[in-house]
Nucleic acid binder design. Structure first.
Lengths: 213, 213, 213, 213
DNA sequence: TATGAATGAGCCTTCATTCAT
DNA sequence: CATGAATGAAGGCTCATTCAT
């Protein structure tokens, strides 16, 4: 499962730092012009070092994209994990999970858009690696759903609902020009929660109250 | 709203034919390798004519992408319009609309994926043109929802639900590797409808029965 | 045995012409600066067309080198074949063969030097292809030797003598700075023939006289 | 005639050691991939120190090649000188010289090949320096020939024969794939001596017997 | 109209060399 | 003295686009 991008440089500390610079710079560029229209020189410049130095930390341009995707997912996953307790057995935990997730998708709009528009440019192997991370995230949502509901529902339905939530998170960024004209993120979260709970036959008040306690 | 791609050729009939060949060939290529990794030569070859001829019918490579997007949307819209009556005032019409839409998204998976992964490669102007068509489609869904519901709901909620449905259609193609392992398209439609109606506080049986009548 | 360099261009006539231009230009450059220090842009310019056009007729820079080697050997072989009758059974034919061969090596000094200094830069497969052609040439010499001698000599010795002659031809170009100070090509040929015949226990006069008849 | 490669380091002892390491490593690499395809980093690694250290002992990459060539010739010359007495006035000394020389060329095949394929990559000045050493060697052979022969022969012929022998030595390495299939080095030496003596009108037995005495 | 050879800007990548630590 | 991270000039190659036939 480990997928390492080879380096010429040996100092692990330095690698981490430089790659952080890279990801930062690259995300910005990819956001604006997409992966293909972004030059390696531009990436280097945006990262604050020369083209030569860039290539001390990666092998190919695609490595940059991979690093970006990896970074984003790692970040997202981390935040999700610290925000969500997949084992708590109450509606409130679903409420919290969805709230945190959508909030996160708001915070990381740009990154997420970049990722979803460019994964297909990754080499097959890297694509699968990223896909796996995505699956992991959906799985987290599935677990929360399963554990929160006061009744049993078919595994298939759990999957569907989890995927729906997941995609609604992405949609907030992707369809920003349409949605963010009419909704603030708070409103968006509130209404999505409303329909979610409604569709699951749950009184939303329960969730909120449990949460407050 | 008109967005014309200029040509050297005069014969309108011929233009139509040639461009159809182009779109056919290009969609296939874009599907496999994406817009950027597809060369104009490949497009010409897949279209059945020479690179020189290709450039008699377009101005730039991006024109091909635009033509593809345009074609897809035209197709989708056409089928949606013939399948949906936005004015019928019953739950059944929402049921029908969602069913038709999801079915359509199943039929046109590849095309839709191509479109959504590559629009950002379009020049700004063209992007907006395509975006508008998308908006039109969501609007259709909004209308159906508004007219079908036996009660009033806030415009915002209508928008949200329409967008959710819209995205669930795209997700069927985008997340095929995950979803189509567990669902047939019929099952997918059925369960999505189930949760949709549940979230709208509507007995699904009503819809089905109305439909049969 | 066929080893074809792929092209984008279809017109066989044109390919031949352009490649001739290429080989001409490239040999000159390789002669001066060696393969590695010669730029593809320089090759293009020396060939009289643009870098883009160059790459319509080859796939990689190494292809140019291969084309050069191929051209040289084809040329050499052709001239050797037209000058030598491997079946004539007299000393004179050996005399003629060596004379023609050394004369040829004088004419094609530059080309031969280029070839021998750069074959190792060819990809393995191409290297073997060229090596084979070289073997063919040595084989020609072997045949002539075998058929000309009035007595039997061991196959091994035939090989050795053929190789010696072959290398003496190359040496005339390679060691030009040393040899061509002291010898004209006629003198060189005359003395090498002298020692060759001496080493084979043959009166040189026989050969010359037979030849005159 | 002195050609010094400048250094940052002062300690002569150290310089010698480090450069020995360098030559050792470099020869191996050049043998496998040629001078141009070998990187300075690879040379440094093969030498057992860092790229920074490498550049403490040389000024440019070409210096490494020069050092290699220099080393090889020094080695070859040394062995030749210890094996050959250019003043002994008997056929046996020619016999010995050729034998030693060809044996040496067998021992140092790789090095010799490297040298001859890469000298042209040396800067002009260095090329001449190496060429001179080569001339010295041929001169040694010339002297031996002159002194061994029981009769006078023209200076030109001496040169030619010396050059022939010299090139036959190189050919053993260069044409190894062809020759070493049919000959052991002993056989090769024996047959070349045979033809050499024959061409010089000398009974080989004389040489051998003289040698034994 | 159709063709396909020609063009060259521009991209990714390498690698010899330097220099601060 | 030794190290190795940083640099950027330069090279190989691609591909959208043009234009003469």
């Amino acid at each position: 499962m480990l997928k390492k991008v080879p380096t010429t440089v040996k100092d692990e500390q330095l690698i981490k730092m430089r790659r952080n610079q890279m990801v930062k710079g690259a995300v910005n560029l990819f956001k604006q012009k997409g992966f293909h229209k972004t030059t390696t020189r531009e990436i280097a410049k945006a990262s604050g070092f020369s083209i030569g130095t860039l290539y001390e930390y990666i092998r190919t341009k695609e490595d940059v994209l991979f690093l970006v995707c990896d970074y984003i997912y790692e970040h997202v996953k981390e935040r999700m994990e610290s925000a969500i307790d997949t084992n708590k057995r109450s509606i409130a935990s679903l409420y919290d999970a969805v709230t945190s997730y959508l909030q996160l998708m708001d915070d990381m709009q740009d990154e997420v858009i970049v990722m979803y528009q460019e994964v297909k440019s990754l080499p097959k192997e890297a694509q699968e690696y990223v896909l796996q991370k995505e699956k992991d995230m959906v799985l987290m949502l599935e677990k929360v759903i399963q554990n929160s509901l006061p009744y049993e529902i078919p595994a298939q339905d759990v999957k569907l609902v989890a995927n729906n939530i997941f995609v609604q998170g992405q949609m907030w960024g992707f369809r920003r020009w349409i949605l963010q004209k009419d909704f603030s993120i708070q409103q968006y979260i509130e209404r999505q929660l409303h329909f979610l709970f409604q569709s699951l036959n749950i009184e939303q008040e329960q969730a909120v109250q449990q949460d407050i306690q």
